[in-house]
């Protein structure tokens, strides 16, 4: 084979690879883009050719107090869930980092278990438990359920960060006169700060998007995803596209922020 044909061969495979990546991304994002495009389309039904450009659907949802209520509720739940589950996740990760004890494997397994339970089962189980102790159908019921769901994610992120830390860093703080609490405050938490912020964003995003468990336990306190489903069950309404685009924008920003913070891993602590 001549050099030239070999070169053109590799050029072809490079182009094929690029095309393939493009198709995959198109496949993943087409529904979201479609929903976004139709949210500005004047036609009642999502058909092509498109009608004219309109912001009517956005105006409708912004005028709807039910949507605002659900939106505010979702944000509140997401914020509280993020704080609680990040706290729990960080503490669990630190326990793993700091201590060696019997049954640690079991402890870690248990801590990481919730995301492996199918969401429908989790929602049903949560409803069964919470209603038995008269705690279902409240905003805090959603928070409790979401904390269970989100803590493992927060733990995984904090654990990754702690694994990048030079273990002598904490002992160095004690050696320089810091008590356990001072070392936690002045060394461990500052070192883990990017991970903690990332965990807050990610758990908020998971909670904000979560539908199945919230649907079971929320009762009349609908969150945005639950509300979207209820509107859909009633009729096909382009409002959905508007709400969907809006929710997507919020979640994706939270996830992107989290991702950026997790990716800016520096090995400073390990190297120095």
């Amino acid at each position: 084979m001549s050099d030239r044909s070999r070169a053109s061969d590799s050029a072809i495979s490079t182009w094929f690879l690029r095309l393939y990546v493009l198709v995959v991304f198109a496949f993943v994002f087409a529904p979201i883009i479609a929903s976004f495009v139709f949210s500005f389309n004047s036609d009642r039904f999502p058909t092509i050719p498109l009608g004219s450009f309109t912001t009517k659907w956005y105006e409708t949802i912004f005028a709807d107090t039910d949507v605002w209520d659900a939106f505010a509720r979702s944000l509140t739940v997401a914020a509280i869930t993020a704080v609680i589950s990040t706290t729990i996740g960080f503490c669990t990760a630190y326990t793993d980092f700091r201590y060696r004890f019997r049954g640690k494997g079991f402890y870690l397994g248990l801590a990481l278990l919730p995301p492996t339970v199918p969401l429908v089962i989790m929602g049903l189980a949560m409803l069964a438990l919470l209603s038995r102790i008269n705690m279902s159908g409240q905003v805090y019921s959603i928070v409790i359920s979401h904390v269970v769901l989100c803590s493992p994610f927060a733990m995984a992120i904090c654990r990754l960060r702690l694994s990048q830390m030079d273990p002598s860093l904490e002992a160095a703080a004690w050696n320089l006169g810091a008590s356990q609490w001072q070392a936690m405050k002045t060394v461990i938490i500052p070192f883990c700060k990017p991970a903690i912020i990332a965990a807050l964003c990610l758990t908020a995003a998971v909670s904000f998007d979560e539908f199945a468990v919230a649907w079971f336990v929320s009762g009349l306190n609908k969150t945005i995803p639950v509300m979207i489903l209820e509107i859909l069950q009633g009729n096909v309404d382009p409002q959905i596209n508007a709400i969907g685009s809006f929710v997507f924008a919020i979640s994706i920003s939270l996830v992107v922020v989290a991702q950026i913070l997790v990716m800016t891993r520096d090995d400073k602590g390990r190297k120095s």
Binding site: D166, S168, L169, A171, A172, A173, N175, V187, P190, F191, K193, D266, K268, G269, S272
Partner: peptide, 11 residues
Amino acid sequence: LVWQSLALFPF
């Protein structure tokens, strides 16, 4: 103690 890894605080 001066540590083998130095253990300087990176932040």
